[in-house]
Amino acid sequence: MMMMIRGLLLSLTLFITACTPVYRHHGYVPPDQDLSAIVVGETTQFDVESLVGRPTAKGLLQGSGWYYVGSRWRDFGALPPKEISREVVAVSFAPDGTVSNVERFGLEQGRVVTLSQRVTDSNVVSVGFIRQILGNMGNFSAGQVFD
């Protein structure tokens, strides 16, 4: 009888701990403290690399912008992983190589939301690229890539 109770308690303990959520982080988004060191109109592309690191993605046009992308996923038991948050920091550059804009975007209920921005005279040149990054992350699996 005592052996059965111990087995039941062990099984119950394993069952409860298996349902503990596990969080995974993908990508890199510089914190606000690091971004505050970037001065719009003065900081160069080389300075941005030394202040906050190399970007996750770059704009298609030469010098158009750098994009830092990060997301947080939650695995819970046997349920499929769920994306909890996604964030993109876009650093745009003027033709002379200085920073023209720094914006932070998030994803709220499937819609792109501007969380913060520092603009000189124009908005981010390639918002379509940002929307593509935010919209496509998590929509494919490794199995689809290698098939």
Rank of each mutant, 00 (worst) to 15 (best):
Q62N: 02
G65V: 02
V40L: 13
V22T: 06
F76W: 14
L61N: 14
Q62R: 05
S64E: 11
P31I: 01
D96W: 13
A90S: 14
V127M: 12
D34V: 00
Y68F: 13
A142I: 10
L134Y: 06
V52T: 05
V22G: 03
G110T: 08
T120G: 05
K82D: 12
R6S: 09
F93W: 13
G27A: 03
I5N: 11
L10D: 01
T98Q: 15
D47N: 14
L8P: 02
L134P: 02
V113F: 02
F15E: 00
R111V: 08
M4R: 13
T98R: 15
L51Y: 14
I16L: 14
V145L: 01
R24A: 11
L14E: 01
Y28K: 02
L9G: 01
T114Q: 11
A94F: 11
Y67P: 00
E87F: 00
L35E: 10
Q132Y: 07
M4L: 12
L79E: 14
G143M: 05
P95D: 15
K82G: 04
P95K: 15
P31R: 04
H25C: 02
R24H: 15
Y23N: 01
P55G: 06
G7S: 06
R54K: 08
Q45T: 12
P55Y: 05
R86G: 12
W73P: 00
R74A: 08
S92F: 10
S122E: 11
F76R: 07
A90V: 12
P21W: 05
Q33V: 04
D75M: 10
S122R: 11
N139W: 03
N139G: 04
Y67N: 00
L8A: 13
E87G: 06
V124C: 04
R24W: 09
G135D: 04
N136H: 07
T17E: 05
S100P: 02
S92G: 15
A37S: 11
G63T: 04
F76C: 03
N123E: 14
W66N: 10
R6A: 09
S122Y: 10
V112G: 07
R6P: 00
E42P: 02
Q117E: 14
L10N: 06
V102A: 11
S50F: 06
G27L: 04
T20S: 10
T120A: 09
V39T: 13
G138F: 01
Q45D: 12
N101V: 02
F15C: 01
G65W: 12
D47A: 12
V29S: 14
P81G: 07
L51C: 00
T114N: 10
G65Q: 10
V112K: 15
E83F: 00
K58W: 12
A94N: 15
N139V: 04
I16H: 03
P30I: 01
F105W: 15
F76V: 01
P80G: 10
G65E: 09
L61T: 10
I130C: 03
L51V: 04
T17P: 00
V127G: 02
N123F: 09
Y23F: 10
L10V: 08
A94P: 05
P55H: 09
L10W: 09
E87H: 09
W73A: 00
G128P: 06
D34Q: 09
S92Q: 15
R104H: 11
